[in-house]
């Protein structure tokens, strides 16, 4: 059981550092995982150099989806948006440090999908964003 629910995941799930909602914000996006009803919203403030000045996530769902979101937000603060656009699923899996089956992978990648749809300014979050 310890392999999937590593301490880092439980810790970020129970005590997230970046849960919240920024107002005003420059970027906002939200989406659901229809399979389990997980929900993630991300808000971002950018600076004049097109970098992430600050960011937060909000929502509800399983430990994997919420911990991934917290880790992801932590990892993008201070990063240029262009770099954020390049993030892919390996980034999330590296931070989580676990292997996931296809169902749980969707939970883990929900926040990245939401983030990229927001940063790219898309109308809809597609799974292609996190392939």
């Amino acid at each position: 059981m310890d392999d999937l629910y590593r301490e880092v995941i439980i810790e970020h799930y129970k005590n997230p550092g970046y849960r919240g909602h920024l107002d005003p914000h420059d970027i906002q996006f939200e989406d659901n995982n229809p399979l389990c009803g997980d929900h993630i919203e991300i808000t971002i403030q950018t600076d004049e150099n097109e970098k992430v000045a600050d960011a937060r996530f909000d929502g509800h769902g399983c430990a994997i989806s919420q911990a991934s979101a917290d880790l992801l937000i932590e990892s993008i603060i201070g990063k240029p948006l262009d770099e954020v656009k390049q993030l892919n699923k390996d980034h999330i899996l590296e931070m989580l440090g676990i292997e996931l089956g296809p169902v749980r992978l969707k939970c883990a990648l929900l926040s990245l999908k939401v983030l990229k749809a927001g940063v790219y300014g898309l109308g809809e979050a597609s799974d292609d964003l996190v392939e």
Binding site: L4, Y5, C36, G37, D38, G61, A63, R104
Partner: peptide, 21 residues
């Protein structure tokens, strides 16, 4: 606790239940 987490932890003990809607 989200049902996915319940199901996933039970699975480690070989217990197959379903989680979701």
């Amino acid at each position: 606790v989200h049902p996915h987490d319940v199901a996933q932890i039970l699975d480690k003990g070989g217990i197959a239940i379903r989680a979701g809607h």
